[in-house]
Design a protein around this nucleic acid. Structure first.
Lengths: 156, 156
DNA sequence: TATTGTTATACTCTATAACTATA
DNA sequence: TATAGTTATAGAGTATAACAATA
């Protein structure tokens, strides 16, 4: 019989294993695992507001800002005024950032291959789906979930 | 088709959701999510060496030490000389620590219930198994894994 | 020689609260 | 009134390297 604690510990162990391997793989390029996630999110959704970026990364906006400051100093990302909302700023990869991300993506390839190699294709797909349900179950409910807030357009 | 990046992001999102809910649930009791994991590990395997504790938590020994110092200051854990290995120290919950853990365990119950509530029993069990395979795939291999080191007996 | 644990150190992520500017 | 972002601040976890004591 599987209890919740066992599931929590298994989830933690798998994530930490992934995180450590990622830190090691990206360290030579001077980027942390979380910074890689940020860059990858930008690569897929250019250009996002900081708020939308933080939502997609499931990180706090002020955490994301701290990360952006570091990445901006290194010239990997740039921020520009939002075209229609003067409060907001859009974030995007710079040319340097795009080149760096290509190298990072390649450096992460063995990790992705290793994860997939431990699973059959149908298992990988099932795992993603189960994880999504767990995540959804954990964030919503429990307090008759408040409606998601309105925000300026994500992509510009 | 499920790619490795998608899996990595889903794993991260699920873990972070769990971590945040845990931080919130345990904050009123003055304990972090990671400290809860440490206490739970001790509750199940009294008394461990620091090294074995760090292994079971998949954390770095020096990280675990930093956590132990904090928990020892608050009287939740105690360290004693190892009975047969003078280099090692065993860690265990104090009486206060055991009482605190009981409250923490109760505070975490809604989280465990919510995770399990999102899954059928067979799915929960399958998820644990898939996560374990991913974790194993990520830590071993890749460099013809070195043998695990020998260590003094885990339990005293 | 290898291992347990300690110490010193540094950095990233994390998050809260108070604040400004804009919607 | 609510939202986007900034600032200040604090703390936790993370990890490396050098070291002592012991196996």
């Amino acid at each position: 019989m599987t209890d919740g604690h066992e599931l929590a510990i298994a989830l933690r162990a798998a994530y930490l294993a992934l995180h450590r391997r990622s830190e090691a793989a990206f360290a030579a390029l001077g980027v942390t695992a979380d910074q890689f996630v940020l860059l990858a999110t930008l690569d897929r959704g250019d250009a996002l507001t900081q708020r939308e970026l933080s939502r997609r990364m499931s990180s706090d906006p002020s955490t994301v800002r701290a990360m952006l400051v570091l990445l901006e100093q290194r010239g990997l990302v740039g921020r520009a005024p939002h075209p229609t909302d003067a409060r907001a700023r859009t974030v995007a990869l710079t040319a340097d950032g795009k080149r760096a991300f290509q190298r990072l993506w390649a450096a992460g390839e063995p990790i992705r291959a290793q994860m997939l190699g431990a699973l059959r294709p149908d298992e990988a797909s099932a795992l993603v789906s189960l994880l999504a349900r767990v995540a959804r179950g954990l964030s919503a409910e429990s307090a008759s979930a408040p409606a998601t807030s309105h925000s300026p357009e994500d992509d510009v």
